[in-house]
Amino acid sequence: MKLTDTYFLTFAAMLFTIGAVGFLVRRNVLVMFMCVELMLNAVNVTFVAFSKSLNDISGQAIVFFVLVVAAAEVAVGLAIIVAIFRRRRGGATADDIDLLRG
């Protein structure tokens, strides 16, 4: 039995689905963010799997850019969450934040 890229792609597809469903199902903003991280990681696994199966280094280089975008997204997103919860003392649910103005 040999380890082919199909195993990794299947694993990444499952991880992505868990992240996507979790993002839609949960109401806690922080957990929704973690689900975004799960989806980004599934994409990283796909990139590395293709990098291995095609014997091409650029797949690994692109994962770097995904990491940078993930870090930037988390920094700005958590700053937004902190700013929102400093202004209102509610629970951490996404449904309370539906006014689209400051």
């Binding site: 940078v68 975008v69 930037a72 997204e73 920094a75 700005v76 700053a79 937004i80 902190v82 700013a83």
Partner: peptide, 15 residues
């Protein structure tokens, strides 16, 4: 992008 993220989070977290 990283510079923009740093500036953005500082601006957002300011009181």
């Amino acid at each position: 992008l990283l510079v923009a993220a740093v500036i953005g989070s500082v601006v957002l977290a300011r009181r």
